[in-house]
Design a protein around this nucleic acid. Sequence first.
DNA 1: ATGTCAGGTCATACCTGA
Length: 257
Amino acid sequence: MKIATFNVNGVNGRLPRLLEWLEETQPDVACLQELKAPQEKFPEKAIRDAGYGAIWQGQSRWNGVAILARGCDPVETKRCLPGDPSDEQARYIEAAVNNVLIGCLYLPNGNPQPGPKFDYKLAWFERLIGYGQELIGSGLPIVLAGDYNVVPTDFDIYNPRSWLNDALLQPESRDAYRRLLAQGWTDALRHLHPDEAIYTFWDYFRNAWGRNAGLRIDHLLLSPSAAPRLLEAGVDRDVRGREGASDHAPTWVVLDD
DNA sequence: ATGTCAGGTCATACCTGA
């Protein structure tokens, strides 16, 4: 079972690229972030025609998350992160697919920091940690996949120097990520490739792709009952180099059935 | 400090978020 996460940066503007990638790599599950489309403008028909059932939580202009499942409909279990009913940003959706619980998340970017956006990021992270404990407690096989907007360590970036003041590298962001992992989650990419420089995002600025000036911020975390099933993990890097690409590349794991 | 995208609007130029 192949499970991927892909920050598409606009699901309608990027639709041909998305469909092309689905056709080429045939993931069983695809978690999408940054739809940048209101609920009614999600390209449901095109995705269904490509062979995928989908659930999504849209939002005009920003955010927006979706879960696609090849040949079936995801069974929705949540469409927002528990813990703050006043939070209206579309950043979490969850579904069961083929007996695996899939959480698709788009953690707040948090820039500029310090400031209210960074506060919101950290508060959202604390809610995720709280809910993560609940998920672990369920004992279910779970994949928490998405754009975490956190560079876990300096090894996960080409060069931290020009990003030291960025919300993605702040000690508070990294500490929250570490505390989430400490509940028992496995960072699948890093687990299988401990010594490899792996990036999932390359800024549109300053020819970042051309210089391979990347960051690893898209993560797939596996619960204790899912982790022993991990077979492969990787990044579809070539997708980032194409015409009209998102600034993120699809990132994926394969679990033993 | 700069730079590039996407989507949206009191739209054909500017804004925000990333």
